[in-house]
Design a protein around this nucleic acid. Structure first.
Lengths: 151, 151
DNA sequence: TATTGTTATACTCTATAACTATA
DNA sequence: TATAGTTATAGAGTATAACAATA
């Protein structure tokens, strides 16, 4: 049964995971990109520039993204007191509520996907993937926090 | 070291995998979506309608996608002889060459990511993910071929 | 009548370039 | 001068609705 190559297995897993997040976001009426935005704002209050770097997009793209999220009442712009050129972006109460909901649903989805595994297999999988991730981060200097679950 | 939850580990892995494919596609000057299009056409010559179903997008979106790929010489439309309303979509020689290149590079990337693991750990990971994927497919009736690596 | 594909239109997301207001 | 953010513009990708050609 299941003659799948390692590359295929990883690619298909990636597809399933992203699909799950996409569908949960869609239930709440927003896109994967908006979800990423809310995700990185969960534990940060960055300037527009920092936000663009966190999402790896141009500052003009970040500005538009925030425009649309702001129009929907999910995030808020506040002027920086330190540098009057800067703007801080943060979640509104509603934005936080929504991102928490989506995250919870997504966690349930992933947990459900792993149900075929025993507790010890579950642990093995986590350990193996963690090593791959940590090694990759070390080799590429990626900021793990910036690519967090909700993100 | 590496205190990562299972959900985080899977989400981050999905992120890394997709990122790799995206970067390889970008090297050849096309998007993830175009890569998916070429990927599903590697072993198929579907009608526009079938293509839309394979990619899970509207037929009008598929039509536009094929327009752009055709303009770049990657795919070709040919009238169906069976049903004169239908159009068959297929890779050009250049399209096939490019998708094969991207796939090969992507496979190298994924293989490189797994280098920290021993051969037996590598096998364990594949086996565990395969079970998750097969169980998920069985539960949801997903066509595994339609979500193949290049796709 | 129903289906296949295209087109018109609109929205999101992205980037580049030009602009403003600070620094 | 340099930087932070916005805006104008353009292109990809998506969907809905209306349409022509064919079944």
């Amino acid at each position: 049964m299941a003659q799948i190559s390692t590359v295929d297995a990883l690619a298909q897993t990636a597809f399933l995971i992203q699909r799950a997040l996409e569908q949960r976001a869609d239930e709440h009426g927003f896109s994967l990109t908006q979800t990423r935005l809310l995700g990185v704002l969960r534990d940060r209050e960055p300037t527009m520039n920092e936000l663009a770097q966190l999402l790896d997009i141009d500052k003009s793209s970040a500005s538009g993204l925030v425009d649309r999220a702001e129009r929907r009442g999910l995030v808020q712009r506040t002027p920086s007191t330190l540098d009057r050129r800067s703007v801080l972006v943060r979640l509104t109460t509603q934005g936080r509520r929504l991102v928490d909901e989506v995250s919870a649903r997504f966690e349930q989805d992933v947990t459900a996907m792993l149900e075929p595994l025993t507790a010890s297999e579950h642990s093995s999988l986590t350990a193996l993937l963690s090593r791959v991730i940590v090694a990759h981060a070390a080799a590429h200097g990626v900021d793990l926090l910036a690519t967090a679950p909700g993100a």
